[in-house]
């Protein structure tokens, strides 16, 4: 044994999490690899929908479908980038060499993806209201925020898992969306159904509770699955 007696207390989760989040923020602010692309992509997609559907204003089912499909595809860009810096620059190994709890990496990545999505929506939702939405945004906003929160949660738990699954493969940009999109269909389905009455042509309708509960349960189940299997993606 080494002659120096060292206290080998495990590093505190909160300290590690704060350090990892600070790292994520700095890397993104300096490289601009994810968030600007996601936001710009969403606005471009709204323009595409305008021409593809040949409509100036959308409401109801169509509005909610266009909004959610756009958000989902924009989220794919973030999911694909989420672990790239760690896989390419050795952050995974550096993390595994430390005594820090493995699940802190999951928490930090999930929170990072959530932050990506929030910034995306700060850009995409007003842009959508401006460019495509037939009715006013303000009355619909409270209901929309609830659905967005639950939808984001679903994208976060599945995106973090699939991002980690795909990043160390030879075709990660393809596998990420191919695996995560089918898994996200129930999220899309529930979120789109819950959003469509809110974006109704004759003013915001009530939130359909059934879809919100289903969505929340789906988030919960896949949150637990992601938590349970994430560690196995780290070790070698």
């Amino acid at each position: 044994m080494s002659s120096t007696t060292r206290t080998m207390a495990a590093p505190r989760t909160r300290v590690v999490l704060a350090a990892l989040l600070r790292k994520e923020l700095r890397v993104e602010l300096r490289s601009f690899e994810a968030v600007p692309a996601m936001s710009l992509f969403s606005v471009t997609t709204f323009v595409l929908f305008h021409f593809a559907l040949q409509r100036n204003a959308l409401s109801g089912d169509l509005a909610s479908g266009v909004l959610w499909v756009t958000l989902l595809f924009a989220a794919m860009l973030g999911i694909n980038r989420l672990f790239v810096a760690d896989a390419e620059q050795g952050g995974f190994d550096g993390f595994l060499l430390s005594p820090a709890d493995r699940s802190v990496l999951l928490y930090s990545k999930a929170l990072t993806l959530l932050a990506y999505l929030l910034v995306l929506e700060v850009v995409a939702v007003p842009a959508f209201a401006l460019l495509l939405l037939g009715s006013a945004l303000w009355p619909a906003l409270p209901g929309l925020l609830v659905v967005l929160a639950l939808g984001d949660l679903g994208i976060v738990v599945i995106g973090t898992l699939v991002g980690a699954l795909a990043v160390r493969t030879s075709v990660r940009d393809l596998l990420g969306p191919m695996i995560s999109l089918p898994l996200l269909v129930p999220v899309l389905l529930c979120a789109a159904r819950a959003t469509s009455p809110v974006l109704g042509a004759v003013g915001a309708g009530a939130l359909p509770l059934r879809w919100l509960v289903t969505l929340a349960l789906y988030d919960l189940v896949f949150g637990l699955i992601t938590f349970a299997v994430f560690d196995f993606l780290l070790e070698d």
Partner: peptide, 13 residues
Amino acid sequence: RYASVFAITAGAF
């Protein structure tokens, strides 16, 4: 290992 993670997730799906 990755295939098993996939199979578990998809199996629950």
